[in-house]
Design a protein around this nucleic acid. Structure first.
Length: 330
DNA sequence: AATTCGGGGTT
DNA sequence: AACCCAGAATT
């Protein structure tokens, strides 16, 4: 029994004992539902993403429905989830699947990779869960579990590290009869047991053979290269109200909040305008946004904005900071 | 190889 | 305040 198989068998046993009951986990998985859930869960905790999965699936129950959706409708349902290009790419992918694959998810890792928004992780997840293909998933959980168990010190956010961990993941899954079970198992093990800060080593079924545990380096792994400090940005929003309507402007496809609606921006604090609340620091993972909301007249704003009622606005995709302002202050 | 995409939960 | 989350696209 080699080290890969010992590890894999323990992971599968853990999963059988501890698997969570999630809406997209079915006896016979539905590829569309697995795809949708995996896109939503990118860089997103299961607990945060699950309600979004439920309401987006209800609104768009099939690939065809998703392909035919109004972009603003999809983005409205996505509001608050973040990484909004996922939603836009999801719909591009749906159109691709309708056009090129007769509305059915392709059934191989290689073909799945050709779909917009599907990268190595998502392709491996769908291929293994739905079609039993033996490609290892590599997500944040897998980096942590593999680096600790096998004692890998290559930085996980380097391209060489990504290659090395993918190869290792593929070695681990190679001997299984249940690729779906193993791949979900290692993620579940990372999420529930081999956690970042307080791993449950005292009750770990594989602590005896874990390199990090035996060398006292559990909390040092995985290695991740530090990134620079977050940048700062100041934003002045111009809030123009007229007869229970408010001016909103749809953002372009570049930079943050692509395709979302927001109050038209002002270049600077306006000469004539009323500050509606103390400036808010909206923290993104890579920058801090210092946001001020100014009540101004229509001639202070420019560009192709339109006026919307509050209910109309709430049918559009908005950054959460704008959605909250519309909900509470208007 | 680096950077840029959100927002919320944990520590 | 720092870290992390069922990552991918772009430069």
């Amino acid at each position: 029994m080699d080290r890969f198989n010992t590890f894999r068998i323990s992971i599968e046993a853990f999963y059988r004992a501890h698997k969570r009951d999630l809406p997209w986990r079915k006896e016979v998985p539905v590829p569309y539902e697995v795809w949708l859930s995996e896109i939503i869960l990118q860089q997103t905790r299961v607990a945060q993403g699950t309600p979004y999965f439920e309401k987006i699936l209800a609104a768009f129950p099939s690939v065809e429905a998703l392909a035919g959706a109004e972009e603003d409708h999809l983005l409205a349902l996505w509001t608050g989830l973040g990484y909004y290009n996922r939603a836009r790419n999801l719909q591009k992918g749906a159109k691709q699947i309708v056009a090129d694959f007769d509305g059915q998810l392709p059934n191989s890792f290689a073909e799945l990779l050709t779909i917009k928004g599907i990268g190595p992780y998502t392709a491996a997840a769908i291929a293994s869960i739905c079609f039993k293909e033996k490609i290892g998933v590599v997500d944040g959980n897998v980096y942590r579990v593999l680096s600790r168990y096998f004692g890998i010190e290559t930085p996980i956010n380097s391209s060489s590290g990504q290659k090395e961990f993918q190869a290792l993941a593929n070695e681990c899954i190679a001997g299984t009869k249940h690729p779906d079970l193993y791949n979900q198992g290692i993620m579940e093990f990372g999420a529930l047991h081999c956690t970042p800060k307080k791993p449950h080593c005292m009750t770990c079924p594989i602590a005896d053979s874990c390199h990090a545990h035996n060398s006292g380096t559990v909390l040092e792994l995985p290695i991740k290269l530090k990134k620079g400090k977050r940048s700062k940005e100041t934003i002045h929003f111009g809030v123009v109200e007229r007869e229970n309507l408010v001016a909103l402007k749809k953002r372009g496809t570049d930079s943050i909040w692509a395709g979302l609606y927001e109050f038209p921006r002002l270049n600077d604090a306006p000469e004539q305008g009323q500050l509606m609340a103390e400036p808010i620091v909206h923290k993104l993972s890579h920058k801090d946004l210092y946001c001020s909301f100014w009540a101004v007249s229509e001639d202070e704003i420019s560009g192709d904005f339109n006026f919307y009622s509050k209910p109309e606005a709430q049918q559009l995709g908005m950054p959460i900071i704008i959605a909250d302002f519309v909900a509470k202050k208007l």
